[in-house]
Design a binder for these strands. Sequence first.
DNA 1: CGAAAGGCTCTTTTT
DNA 2: GAGCCTTTCG
Length: 727
Amino acid sequence: MDILAKLNPAQKEAVETIEGPVLILAGPGSGKTRVITHRVAYLMNVCGISPHHIMAVTFTNKAAREMEERLSELAPGSVQSLTLGTFHAICARILRRDGKACGIEPGFVIYDDDDQLDLVKRALQELNLDPKKFVPRAILSVISSNKSNMLTSQDCTRSTRSYFEEVTGRVYERYQQLLTASQALDFDDLLMRTVLLFREHPEILKKYQERYIHLMVDEFQDTNLTQYELVKQMADKYKNICVVGDPDQSIYSWRSADLRNILNFEKDYPLARVIYLEQNYRSTQRILDTAAHVIKANRQRKQKELWTENEIGELTNIIETYTEQEEAQYVVKEIERLVESGEANYRDCAVMYRTNAQSRVIEEAFVRYGLPYKLVAGTRFYERREIKDVIAYLRLIQNPCDSVSLLRIINIPNRGIGQQTLNLLSKWASEQGISLFDALKKLAEPDGGTGLLPFNSRTVKTLGAFGSLLKDLVLRSRETNLLDLFDHLTVASGYKDYILADEDGDERWDNVQELRTVAETYRELVPPEALTTFLESVALVSSVDDLDESNNKVTLITLHQAKGLEFSNVFMVGVEEGLLPHIRSLEDPFQMEEERRLCYVGITRARRRIYLTHAFRRTLMGHSTVNKASRFLQDIPKNLVAGGEIWQAAESKLGSDYRTMSAQVSDIKPKPSTVALKAGDRVRHAIFGEGVVVSCTPKADDSEVVAAFGGVGVKKLLLSFAKLEKV
DNA sequence: CGAAAGGCTCTTTTT
DNA sequence: GAGCCTTTCG
């Protein structure tokens, strides 16, 4: 297979330039992913470089998987020994292997955002600091940003310029101690500790430097300083470092991504070859023009000229509606129109929004009108209570030091271990100089150290029982396979009964079973290995990772998550002052530029049609607000906009158009079902399939039907809107 | 000890 | 409007 065939000259240059530093500035839709995969294939197939010597870093696991797929076609058989993944996944692997040298246990757990917040709160409490005055979230974000800039807690306590800095420094220090005691690393540690490991142990770094002769980093505009340093360390020997990015699509500065990494690359590597990918293969000319007019108002940017040979395409649609409900209806109605006229499939459409909160109204409209959709990360699967609980049990089995997990589940299900008991327990444990887990184990022993304990006998019994449960689980984990362990633990801990007793227990239990299905992937691995691998994969998944393109459904997604994706028809909703740009960025020119880039990212996801909608009135955080159209819309010249000017529903500003609008939308509304339903009836739903009615209760002049559908679980539906058919 | 109720503050965006 | 925290009562 000719790797270079079908590449344009710039792409070809990017693929063939394998020596020395290379900076690829790739506009949206310029075939960036194609270039990266082809470059890796070229290194292996043409230059004869062993995949063992190549590392490619992606932004999400999904991107890594996609690349893997494409590579297995271009260069069959070589993918396994390639190092391919996110920074976090790659660093976790390095630290498990070599972290011991700087005191990191190979069995460390990875703490996510929630776990981190827990620890910050605990640190505040221990330091007697008022969480009202020092907001845990804010402190955590300071800690995180320090770690992203390679600042250790020592660095942050050494010199402080304000009381707040002094406090955050102290909290950081305590937080880090708590992490260490739990044998845990947070997301930022994965990166920073790897860099520190390399700094302190040049012999280990050397091993990696010699292994990775070729490095590639995608989405380079979204790397932070720590990641940059890591790349620099690794590439220092051979300097075959190829980074790919687009400053105009940098949208993660709030996560400490530093645009300077890409803007300064040429300074750090004066010999760097800079390659521009400017031909766009994705969008129509008008979509590109629209995007260009929006982005060109930014000051901080590298000028690029995007062009395309694609057709000129349709005009940009700018729509104002009265409320966000009407906006959602408009979107639904327009998608239905496109589908019915054969212009599009559901899967070709995406609705994009600035904040997750906006998805609710959109979702409701989709449910109401029965259009199929998939929501990327509403309540993310791994953030559900029942999932986090079971994972906490598993993490604790793997690493008994994990205090966050222990404290999470010590009283779930209720064992009668309350705050009081907990305080006594941790005091007793620290007096003895042992971990909470060991304390529990001690209490599980038959003579438990009777007499010397600060607990009454009932409490000793309760704690001891829990201790022996954990002890038993840990023992089992060494010989039992992952799935049996999973099943045993959910039953033996009483968690299954506990969750099933819950109001929507069946649905929650289904979720637990879904987690079990994920665990099945690791069934062939030997016991301890299986658990570790499973937990690691669970810790590092992101919401777009399991975005499944096979179903014919409309995608509902945030603008941030949409980066790197493309759809024929894109509906950007809430393009309003205060939302996009977000209210938090109105005062800050730097953040304002980032909002603009976000808008640019959204527009450039579109292949054929772009719809930018805004609502006159919108309910935010409980109360109704009035928003003006986004300033970004003003930058789009009239001749690019459908209707020759920014279109508004005729009377929309007065609010009276809502009825007309609803009337139009109701054209596609299914006829209200007249069938009366009762519990036990079997029904069929257009999207959910067959199910059984759980209950049917009258509500206003309608009925609320609760029905259980195989596979999708229990859903609440309004009788008049749901397409329910009696079977 | 824990369930339930009331009161508070917010919300960007996520590996 | 929700999620989190505190308070109250059995």
